[in-house]
Design a protein around this nucleic acid. Structure first.
Lengths: 242, 242
DNA sequence: CCTGTCGATATGTATAGATAATATCAAGAT
DNA sequence: ATCTTGATATTATCTATACATATCGACAGG
């Protein structure tokens, strides 16, 4: 291995092995030489080799078993990483002009209809919430319709925010700590007010993303994002090098 | 840290720090003590502490800068991992009876219409391909309509396979090495033959997943999976411990 | 005021060595 | 034939140490 010193040793070795797997040179089931031998072959210490193999195992490329050895894994599940971004950034990345327009805002407890639309089983119904609806647009075209509830008990600061000027998602992201998030994605036909706000004809297909955000068993916010179906895609790549 | 010896040191420390971040005890921007101090606090060597912090940084929870220190990151992008499984397993996981029915099969070069349906810019048009269409069902209900092209030049073995009995995706997965995959997901309205095969009325919303699989610049297979929109969801979780 | 140099400091990478955990294999006991 | 047990090979984890590298701050020179 000629040392082009742009990357660290373990990064280069990792890429080398990964490419052997992805290019098919080492098919699933292929047994790798053992850690100590690989270390000698690559001219590094066992710890460095271990770091490489541990990371490959964590990413699912190989399976390691004590006493048996290390094998290339079967590519069983196509796990794909979706980056669900801040919508303003998403629009900006497409080189389009972003705008947010609030269309309704109420402060009240969640009702059964809210839970249905937002895909939530049960929330603490006593919690007072801010219920919003608004449109994200790109170059004045509807881009995404947002329906959101924010838990005022958990996020009291939200009461003082002007959501005509502050995009709710961005405000929450910047003012809240890390949280656990659950997404579900499906396709639906839109009708009525939703279709009208998105300037779509009734029955058009839309991509619906429901997001549930919570911290420590307290719900923070529920969102429903509706994207005009034909025009919006989620992209996920997997297995690429570099 | 009392040593409940179920997990390794670095795993326990990692979970400890991760929970501090996800529970909000350490908000974004919070500066962690320096590596050497944390090592002393947890009673481990600096290398072990480094392993923990390196992994947290790789997962985007913290940001590390030489001479400056280590900080809790802003939760900027909600990256979510989608596991796009083998459909038979997916159906089985729902406790339903799986079946596959091939509805058409042809061997011929790809035409412009194929490329449009499968969302492909250009393939090597000289390649002869097997073009399939078939239905995955769960308890005799349509579950997913698959339209697929397999590159016979890259996968000559496919010519001898009986795709009435062998589900194409599962066969490819088991007989091919690792590969790079690109997914795109959107919502569409279905009509015509697709709607008919899925037993949906014209115009119903469907989730469309396009998948492009290649090895080393050679395309292996293009697939289009159509799921009845209302009934199927992709789920992605993030930030959960354990 | 700008610019370069240098030291201090925190992280980044790599090594050698040691010990522990564990799955398999084979020999021996029942 | 089957179970038990111990030896062994391999990975898993942890430590102590060393040097590399990026960056900040201070100070000096123009």
């Amino acid at each position: 291995m000629p040392a082009s010193n742009f990357e660290s040793l373990h990064t280069r070795i990792l890429e080398d092995i990964r490419s052997k797997i992805i290019d098919g040179a080492w098919p699933p089931g292929h047994q790798l030489d053992k850690e100590t031998e690989l270390a000698v072959q690559y001219g590094v210490s066992r710890m460095t080799m271990n770091k490489v193999l541990t990371e490959l195992a964590a990413n699912g490329f190989i399976i390691r078993r004590k006493r048996i050895g290390t094998f290339v894994a079967q590519a069983r599940t196509q796990s794909a990483v979706l980056e669900i971004n801040n919508i303003a950034e998403e629009v900006a990345a497409l080189g389009r002009r972003y705008a947010w327009k609030l269309s309704s805002e109420e402060t009240r407890p969640l009702c059964a209809n809210d839970l249905r639309v937002l895909g939530v089983k049960r929330a603490t119904l006593d919690d007072t919430a801010i219920c919003l609806k608004g449109l994200h647009s790109a170059d004045d075209e509807p881009f995404c319709l947002e329906t959101r509830a924010i838990n005022l008990t958990a996020v009291p600061a939200a009461a003082t925010v002007d959501f005509e000027k502050n995009v709710p998602g961005a405000w929450l992201l910047s003012s809240m700590p890390w949280s656990s998030v659950r997404h579900s994605i499906r396709a639906i036909n839109v009708f009525g007010r939703d279709a009208h706000l998105l300037q779509l004809s009734a029955g058009s297909a839309c991509l619906e993303i429901l997001r549930k955000t919570q911290i420590n068993d307290n719900w923070i916010t529920f969102v429903r994002l509706l994207y005009p179906g034909e025009s919006h895609q989620l992209i996920a790549e997997f297995g690429e090098q570099s």
